[in-house]
Amino acid sequence: MEISNAAKRAADLTRQFLAFARKQTVAPKVLNLNETLTGMLSMLHRLIGEHIHLNWQPASNLWPIKIDPSHIDQILANLCVNARDSIADIGKISIKTGNCVIDEQFCTDIKGFDPGEYVQLTFSDSGCGMDEETIVHIFEPFFTTKDAGKGTGLGLATVYGIVKQNKGFINVDSKPNQGTVFTIYLPRYVGDINQTRTESLVAPLERGEETILLVEDESTILNTAMMMLEEQGYTVLAATSPDVAIGLAKEHPSKIHLLITDVIMPGMNGRELAKNVQDLFPDIKLLFMSGYTANVIAPHGVLDEGFHFIQKPFTLPDLAGKVREVLEC
Rank of each mutant, 00 (worst) to 15 (best):
residue 263 V to L: 03
residue 230 E to D: 02
residue 158 T to P: 00
residue 12 D to S: 10
residue 59 A to T: 03
residue 175 K to Q: 14
residue 189 Y to A: 03
residue 43 M to Q: 14
residue 239 A to E: 14
residue 218 E to I: 08
residue 240 T to G: 08
residue 13 L to Y: 09
residue 292 Y to L: 12
residue 328 E to T: 10
residue 47 L to H: 14
residue 160 Y to K: 13
residue 285 K to T: 05
residue 293 T to M: 01
residue 61 N to H: 15
residue 29 K to Q: 14
residue 215 V to A: 07
residue 274 A to T: 02
residue 227 M to R: 09
residue 156 L to T: 06
residue 184 I to E: 06
residue 148 A to R: 11
residue 131 D to G: 14
residue 1 M to E: 11
residue 51 H to E: 15
residue 315 T to W: 02
residue 131 D to T: 14
residue 240 T to P: 04
residue 146 K to M: 15
residue 104 E to A: 12
residue 299 P to S: 05
residue 79 L to I: 07
residue 215 V to F: 05
residue 186 L to I: 13
residue 272 E to G: 05
residue 219 S to L: 12
residue 137 H to Y: 11
residue 237 L to I: 10
residue 275 K to V: 11
residue 301 G to K: 09
residue 208 G to H: 09
residue 283 D to S: 14
residue 190 V to C: 10
residue 36 T to Y: 02
residue 243 D to N: 15
residue 291 G to L: 06
residue 39 G to V: 09
residue 48 I to T: 14
residue 50 E to Y: 10
residue 1 M to S: 15
residue 19 A to F: 05
residue 179 G to V: 05
residue 139 F to A: 08
residue 46 R to D: 15
residue 39 G to D: 08
residue 295 N to F: 13
residue 106 F to Q: 10
residue 4 S to E: 11
residue 56 W to Q: 07
residue 250 K to S: 05
residue 224 T to G: 00
residue 114 D to N: 15
residue 321 G to P: 04
residue 179 G to S: 08
residue 223 N to Y: 07
residue 302 V to Y: 01
residue 105 Q to K: 06
residue 105 Q to L: 09
residue 222 L to Y: 08
residue 136 V to E: 13
residue 69 P to N: 04
residue 327 L to W: 06
residue 157 A to Q: 01
residue 154 L to K: 09
residue 75 I to R: 04
residue 33 L to N: 06
residue 198 T to C: 09
residue 44 L to H: 08
residue 149 G to D: 05
residue 319 L to T: 03
residue 126 S to D: 04
residue 212 I to P: 05
residue 132 E to Y: 06
residue 291 G to F: 01
residue 267 G to R: 00
residue 166 N to A: 07
residue 209 E to S: 11
residue 239 A to F: 09
residue 25 T to N: 12
residue 319 L to Y: 00
residue 73 D to Q: 13
residue 16 Q to M: 13
residue 62 L to W: 03
residue 85 D to Q: 14
residue 241 S to L: 06
residue 90 I to K: 13
residue 35 E to G: 10
residue 97 T to H: 00
residue 248 L to Q: 15
residue 310 I to C: 04
residue 288 F to C: 00
residue 284 I to K: 01
residue 280 L to A: 14
residue 216 E to Q: 06
residue 235 T to A: 06
residue 151 G to F: 02
residue 68 D to C: 13
residue 3 I to W: 09
residue 160 Y to Q: 09
residue 57 Q to F: 09
residue 291 G to S: 05
residue 9 R to S: 12
residue 120 Q to R: 14
residue 64 P to R: 05
residue 64 P to N: 08
residue 129 G to A: 08
residue 135 I to F: 03
residue 107 C to Y: 04
residue 307 F to P: 00
residue 101 V to L: 13
residue 248 L to K: 15
